[in-house]
């Protein structure tokens, strides 16, 4: 019996799809198809984002001057308060520098930061991924940490020239290394697929962790720089049959509101520049004739 052409076509396309899936899985992020396609998806994202952008613009336009001066005053006040808080925080960190992680986090202040706008485009049902309007042309890289004013939001998992996609820490595929702020206890925080909920994994029944504990990024794994707030412990359940505690935490970053996020280029793992050492190194490299 001869095979019908539609069956042949079906099998061919099936094999092609599976082949593409394999290619995408093993050459993720530098897939030529994705790069050529980003020029098509860019106007699509713009189009979907357009209504919310115009409404923002209209609101700005009709906002009267008095309201603007009011909000400016309020922001100035907030800024002053934050500056004072920052000073206190720095003093506190200095006084606690027996903990190595805190010493490292003092250098976090020097991290390079770029603000990126969130495109009002939704990639899936649960909005665990966000599109930003900054991409390769702004030196954004895969795995780059993204934060907001309150804590870690996620990391860059997809990238094209003009935009990038952040996967939130609450995505079920993400796990973030953290430590308890109070005592430095290390833990792993897994996403659950819900914006308000994270699971704290692998803490034995004797672990020193309480409801209300703040969890900071620990810097282990070199993905997220140490010392950024991640979550606060919400609930702890112990089950006699399980060897680990069931701990849930609430992310501190405002994952479902806000218009802007911050991309950070962590500096903590690099040597901090020191003019004296640098000049010595420079003279050595000059006498050696070698490239630094």
């Amino acid at each position: 019996m001869r095979i019908k052409p539609i069956v042949g076509q079906f099998i061919f396309l099936l094999v092609l799809s599976v082949g593409l899936m394999f290619l995408d899985q093993f050459f993720h992020g530098r897939n030529w198809l994705k790069n050529t396609f980003s020029s098509i998806s860019k106007p699509v994202y713009r189009l979907v984002d357009f209504p919310s952008q115009t409404s923002d613009w209209l609101i700005d336009w009709f906002n009267d001057r008095r309201e603007l001066t009011q909000s400016l005053e309020q922001l100035e006040l907030e800024n002053a308060i934050l500056k004072v808080k920052l000073q206190r925080l720095q003093a506190e960190i200095r006084s606690q520098n027996k903990l190595q992680s805190f010493m490292r986090s003092t250098q976090n202040i020097a991290d390079e930061i770029l603000a990126a706008d969130i495109l009002n485009v939704n990639l899936e049902r649960h909005a665990q991924r966000i599109i930003l309007n900054k991409g390769q042309s702004d030196n954004v890289y895969l795995g780059q940490p993204v934060v907001d004013d309150f804590g870690i939001v996620g990391q860059i998992t997809d990238l094209s020239v003009a935009h990038s996609i952040v996967t939130l820490i609450t995505d079920a595929s993400q796990s973030t290394p953290v430590m308890v702020k109070r005592n430095g206890l290390r833990a792993l925080v897994n996403g659950t697929g819900h914006l308000e909920k994270l699971d704290v994994k692998y803490q034995g029944a004797e672990a020193d962790i309480k409801v209300g504990d703040h969890l900071l990024s620990s810097g282990i794994g070199y993905r997220f720089p140490p010392g950024y707030p991640v979550a606060v412990v919400d609930d702890i359940q112990s089950d006699n049959n399980e060897s680990f505690l069931q701990i849930t935490a609430r992310p501190l970053a405002q994952l479902n509101h806000g218009k802007q996020l911050l991309l950070i280029w962590p500096k903590t793992l690099q040597r901090t520049p020191n003019p004296h050492v640098d000049s010595v190194l420079e003279s050595i490299s000059m006498t050696d004739g070698a490239n630094p």
Binding site: L13, S17, V18, L20, M21, L33, I40, R129
Partner: peptide
């Protein structure tokens, strides 16, 4: 798949 930044080939299949 390309617009939604999914695994390429998923919806195609």
């Amino acid at each position: 798949d390309l617009i939604m930044a999914n695994l390429i080939g998923h919806h195609a299949l």
